[in-house]
């Protein structure tokens, strides 16, 4: 047993991808199922806050782009569910775990989309934060997950650009549009910083995941990259990031920022965010209302099979 475990770790250390048929520690498998399914659920739940603005997109071009973007997210959910299935978990089980509250999804999607500028802010900040995480995951040790991430990253960079472009248009627009733009940045900034998870000193799963090379950068490292990146980009918009403590640290050659409201973070994780109930309810309703459709499709497929058998006999 010790031997296979050592061999596994040697492969990881040598940057040889772990594939579905390879031996892997049970905890590695469980960690991956948890993480990949959580990631898949985030894509699917993440369709809701943005999807709510498809019917209200202010131009036909924006509408088409937003539709394509939300559809991409559904596609990402599919790749990720498939990647998790290679570890022996069925999609149905994962969906049940989401609906029962056992499985989590990214807390960011428990915040409301109150104006059109939120669609821009989600693209710029939320997708921007997600990309940093996902670029790292393109090199994750589990093969199917890494390959899914490569495809996802290509599309995500388009998502981020479209979000930034929405904000840039607003920032160059009328006084009302500028207010809309700043308001959205104010509301999405702190929740976006929270997307990287607890501080390294408080993160329970991090060490092991780094050793297995599931993760390659710590929460705090990624958060630092994100802040440094956004400080530059917000200048192009001519907007402000809502943090009076945000400033350049000459010694560190990086930015310092104010304290995240960790109480809010944990409240949203526990289900007490502004939209947790609505999001889960929307997912459950979609699934429950679709039950007759899935049953009918299965029944029809069975009838076709029976017919073919009869014809063959």
């Amino acid at each position: 047993m010790e031997n296979v475990e050592q061999k596994f770790q040697d492969s990881v250390n040598a940057e040889i991808k772990i594939e579905p048929r390879n031996w892997m520690p049970e905890a590695y498998r469980k960690t991956l199922i948890r993480q990949i399914s959580q990631h898949a659920h985030s894509e699917i739940v993440g369709m809701l806050p943005e999807g709510a603005w498809i019917t209200r997109a202010p131009s036909l071009k924006r509408k088409a782009i937003l539709l394509a973007k939300v559809q991409d997210e559904a596609g990402h959910g599919l790749y990720l569910y498939s990647a998790a299935e290679t570890l022996g978990q069925s999609r149905e089980q994962m969906i049940n775990d989401l609906h029962s509250g056992k499985a989590k999804y990214s807390s960011i999607f428990n915040y409301p989309t109150k104006s059109w500028a939120d669609i821009g802010a989600i693209g710029w900040l939320v997708d921007g934060a997600a990309i940093l995480n996902q670029v790292m995951l393109c090199r994750t040790s589990y093969g199917p997950y890494a390959r899914a991430m490569v495809r996802i990253c290509k599309e995500e960079s388009f998502h981020q650009r479209q979000g930034f472009d929405i904000l840039l248009t607003l920032a160059n627009g009328t006084p009302e549009q500028k207010i809309m733009c700043q308001d959205a940045i104010n509301r999405w900034w702190w929740p976006s910083l929270m997307m990287f998870g607890p501080k390294d000193s408080e993160s329970s799963n991090s060490d092991q995941s780094m050793k297995w090379k599931i993760k390659r950068k710590s929460n705090d490292e990624l958060r630092q990259n994100f802040v440094d990146m956004c400080v530059q980009q917000v200048k192009v918009l001519g907007m402000n990031l809502p943090d009076p403590d945000l400033k350049w640290n000459e010694a560190k050659q990086q930015h310092d920022w104010g304290e995240i409201d960790w109480n809010e973070f944990w409240q949203v994780v526990k289900g007490n965010g502004p939209c947790n109930k609505e999001r889960l309810e929307a997912r459950r309703n979609a699934w429950d209302n679709g039950a007759w459709v899935r049953e009918a499709a299965a029944a029809h497929a069975q009838k076709q099979k029976d017919k073919q058998k009869q014809q063959a006999a």
Partner: peptide, 26 residues
Amino acid sequence: NSEWCGHGPVLEQDIALTNISLDLIG
């Protein structure tokens, strides 16, 4: 059709209907 986006009975068909919606808007 776009009102269904995110609320379809199964992921693959959610994508299919959104695709049709995109075609029609195009």
